[in-house]
């Protein structure tokens, strides 16, 4: 199928009101930077970024029903590969994205193969993903070539550098992350309607029944991990260049893995708009809280936003266990997403 008919089909089958909403949102976001200062640009960067990785994680959990609690692994791997290739070999991140994605996919495939081949499911699979992230963190802590625990730094070139090498200010990263978010949405929308997407849904709903229908459950799960890890790694490269520094204790941290999955959970698991909505709600509130606490206490208290996220999650599970998007969708009168 050529990209144009694919696009036409997506537009055709998605709920009209949701599409209008989306088009308006993208249009506003495209021109918004004229009214935003540096701080707000960086807040928006974080929103887009969390929406992107949330969308990626949602492929595994929301569509295929496989819980990963170690997605920071792919962010870290993508980031390190991109940063090392740029700093040590002068390879532009625009090109380094390819090896970064390949490395993350290889790790994803290894975890998936171990888990799915040997029937490790549910919570035990989640533990496996945590273990892989932790082991990788320890490995990078002790790998002096990439700076070990002291971290790896991307020099900030004078004059801003060039955009293609991801050297620039908040405005550049605003647009890069916006593009990522849109791309992730389009990819997921296309996947959800594909044969693979259908197989994922079947596996999520009932793996035994899926097997009985002749769906290759192992292959579907493997595809989910590989797609998800690849998408996350792209976001990882961008994040590394945004931060200009990488520490194993942050890059592969479980706290980051958890933070990444909150937006899709709160927004609505398995929905296309859920990760975006969740990121738009959580990230600004979290950032406001950080700023507020800093003002009141006179100094930054690390992790205060995580406490808030925890509370938000509990409130959410109490009032709208399926997430905010399914609830909002009903309120707005948008029909179910058809496939």
């Amino acid at each position: 199928m050529n990209p144009f008919t694919l696009l036409a089909r997506l537009v055709d089958e998605a709920p009209r009101r949701a599409l209008v909403l989306l088009a308006v949102l993208v249009a506003v976001l495209l021109v918004a930077p004229v009214a935003l200062d540096r701080y707000l640009l960086s807040v928006f960067f974080l929103i887009f970024w969390f929406a992107t990785v949330g969308q990626a994680w949602n492929v595994m959990m929301g569509l295929c029903g496989q819980l990963s609690l170690g997605h920071a692994l792919y962010v870290g791997l993508g980031g390190y590969v991109g940063a090392v290739l740029w700093v040590k070999f002068g390879i532009s991140p625009a090109i380094a994205i390819v090896p970064a994605v390949l490395v993350a996919m290889a790790f994803g495939a290894a975890i998936g193969w171990l888990g799915f081949r040997f029937g490790i499911e549910g919570v035990y699979f989640a533990l496996l993903t945590i273990a892989f992230a932790e082991v990788t963190r320890i490995g990078f802590d002790n790998w002096s070539y990439v700076g070990g625990a002291a971290g790896f730094f991307i020099p900030v070139t004078a004059g801003g550098g060039s955009a293609i090498n991801l050297r620039g200010g908040p405005l550049l990263f605003y647009y890069v992350a916006l593009a990522l978010m849109v791309a992730a949405f389009v990819i997921c929308a296309a996947l959800r309607r594909s044969r693979l997407g259908h197989a994922w849904l079947a596996v999520r709903e009932d793996p035994e029944a899926a097997r009985a229908l002749g769906i290759n459950v192992f292959r579907a799960k493997m595809a989910a991990v590989i797609v998800s890890s690849a998408m996350t790694a792209v976001a990882g490269v961008v994040y590394a260049f945004y931060q200009s520094n990488l520490f194993p204790s942050q890059s592969f941290d479980i706290a980051r893995s958890i933070e990444m999955i909150l937006a899709p959970i709160i927004g609505g698991l398995g929905t296309l708009f859920g990760p975006i909505l969740g990121a738009f709600i959580l990230t600004p509130l979290g950032q406001t809280l950080i700023a507020l606490v800093e003002k009141i206490a006179g100094r930054a208290i690390p992790g205060v936003n995580l406490v808030f996220y925890g509370a938000a999650l509990m409130v959410m599970i109490w009032f709208a266990p399926n997430g905010i998007w399914p609830w909002l969708k009903k309120k707005l009168g948008i029909p179910e997403e058809r496939s």
């Binding site: 197989a199 849904l201 079947a202 709903e205 029944a209 229908l213 002749g214 496939s339």
Partner: peptide
């Protein structure tokens, strides 16, 4: 083909989606 014990339909998917799942092979 098999119609497994306990029916095993995909509960949150629609009837049409359930039927589509049968034609994946």
């Amino acid at each position: 083909g098999q119609v497994a014990e306990g029916r095993q339909v995909f509960p949150t998917l629609t009837v049409a989606e359930n039927l589509a799942m049968g034609a994946m092979i």
